[in-house]
């Protein structure tokens, strides 16, 4: 019989949302996750718009589900996610998930993403975006990044740049994330592989809008990640 995620499982799950200038997009994301019954650790990455005010507005609606932290200055998605992971470990968390806060990921996929962790099938999960849904430029950049992740980090995955990932508390304690920017996606996969943490790939839905396409791994970001990968070899 197929396992159904319980309220206890959801109470033990903390979703990390790094947010930089997401004032116009983050509210529906927070509310969808809260409605599903999950806890959240939202990290405002020194946004220059009113992202923090929007987050606090949502916190007023779901005071027990939403935990808010704010970086004094913008330090990148990697640092914001690291902060969220560290904060999630302060709570009574068993499973930690990270998602994009721009509405690219669907809260409906949360159950499927944490399921392998709950049933003990894996200790880390990456949400894999369907290639057919990806815009062409993103598709090329992603293929390059998968190839580079294979070359530099010796891990073969279907989607090395996904921002939707989940990990158990024990596994998170074992890994060490130092990337400041988008390199965090490849670094997460490398750390899981290097620490022999069993992981699973779960297909997820991705909602592409002109706004979400402007962020994430495009070709210029891919070049930056390549330079960081080379630097990390030394």
């Amino acid at each position: 019989m197929e396992y159904k995620i319980t309220k206890e499982d959801k109470d033990a799950t903390y979703v990390v949302l790094p947010a930089y200038n997401e004032a116009t997009r983050i509210q529906p994301v927070i509310e969808a996750i809260a409605e599903k019954g999950y806890n959240m650790v939202i990290v405002n990455d020194g946004s220059s718009d009113n992202t923090l005010d929007v987050i606090l507005e949502s916190k007023r609606k779901y005071p027990d589900k939403v935990h808010v932290y704010s970086l004094l200055i913008n330090r990148g998605v990697g640092v914001a996610t690291q902060t969220g992971f560290d904060a999630a470990l302060k709570f009574n968390s068993k499973y930690i998930v990270s998602m994009d806060s721009d509405g690219q990921h669907s809260a409906d996929d949360l159950d499927a993403v944490i399921k392998p962790l709950v049933i003990g099938e894996a200790q880390a999960v990456i949400g894999v975006r369907p290639l057919k849904d990806m815009p062409r430029s993103r598709n090329y950049a992603n293929a390059i990044m998968n190839f580079l992740t294979r070359i530099f980090y010796r891990v073969n995955v279907s989607d090395s740049q996904t921002g939707f990932r989940a990990i158990t508390r024990e596994a998170l304690d074992k890994i060490s994330i130092n990337a400041t920017g988008y390199l965090i996606s490849s670094e997460f996969i490398r750390e899981i592989n290097d620490n022999n943490i069993p992981f699973a790939e779960v297909p997820i839905e991705t909602i592409y809008t002109p706004e979400t396409q402007a962020k994430g791994t495009n070709v210029s970001v891919a070049i930056k990640i390549l330079l960081q990968m080379i630097k990390h070899q030394f």
Partner: peptide, 10 residues
């Protein structure tokens, strides 16, 4: 920046 943020939940 991380330490300051973690020690000051809003």
């Amino acid at each position: 920046v991380k330490q300051v943020a973690i020690q000051n939940e809003i």
